[in-house]
Amino acid sequence: MIKVPKKPLPSLLTVIGYPFAIALTIFSFFQVGFNIEDFKRNWENRKLVTDTLFDPKWEWAIENASQALLETIQIAILASILGCFIALPLSFYASRATNQTTVTYLIYKSFLNFIRTIPDLFWAMLFTVAVGLGPFAGVLALVMFSMAIMGKLLSETIDSIDLGPLEAAKASGAKHNQAVFTSALPQILPNFTAYFLYIFELCIRASVILGLVGAGGVGRIIETQRIFLRFDRISPIIVLILVAVIAIEQFSVWLRRKIL
C-alpha cells in the first residue's frame, strides 16, 4: 500500500491573500465608479471620437508632425544613451558583488530605488519647471527614467556574476577597480547591450507622451489637437508613431540577435 502524503494546509499567504485581493478588487471598482447611467449618457458622445478618428487627415499630419516625430526619436536616442552610460558605473556600486562597503552600497542602491519610484511624466513636469519648456526637459526626464531601469536590471545582473575571475585578478595583484574593470565588466557587457536596446524601445514609447506636459516631441501636437477634439488629425499621428515604434522594435530585435 502506497502511503499518500497528507496535503499541506493552505499557507498564510493564501488565507490572507485571496480574500484581501478580492476585497481590494471590489473596493477599487467601486471607487473608480463604474456608473451605467453615466455611461449610457456619454455613449452618445462616442460620435465625437469615432466620427473623426476614422477619418484621418494624412497630409496635415505629415506636414505638421514629421518634424516633431523626429524630435521625439532624437530625445529617446540621446536620453537612453546618456542614462544607460551613467547607470553603468553606478550599477557596480549598487551591487554587493563588486562593492563591499555597506554604506556606499546602501546609498547607491537606495538612490536608484528612489529615482525609480517617480514616474516618467512626473520627472518631465519637474524638469519643465526647473529648466524650462522644451525638449531639453524631456531629455533629462528620460535620462532619469532609463538610468533607473538600467541601474536596477544591471545591478541585479552584477549580483549574479561569476566571482572567480574577480578573485583571480585580485590574487594577481590588481586593485579593486582594476579587477572590476577587467573581470566583472566583460561578464555583463552582453547583458548591458541587451538592456540598452530594451530601454531604448521603452524610451521611444515614453518620449511620445512627454509633449503632453510641454517637454518636447510629438506629444505637444497631440495635446493641442486633443483639446479641440480634432481626432481626425490625431489618428494619423498615432499611426505614424505606431509605424516608427514597430520599425525601431524590429531593428532592435534584429540587432540583439546579431550581437548576442
Binding site: 456619454n42 511624466l121 507622451i209
Partner: peptide, 21 residues
C-alpha cells in the same frame, strides 16, 4: 501594446468622461 496608456486615455475621455473610470 503599441498605444501608451495616455493616448488610450484621451481617446476614451469623451466617452467615459473625466474621472478615474
Amino acid at each position: 501594446r503599441a498605444f501608451p496608456e495616455l493616448i488610450l486615455a484621451f481617446v476614451l475621455l469623451p466617452i467615459t468622461g473625466l474621472g478615474p473610470l
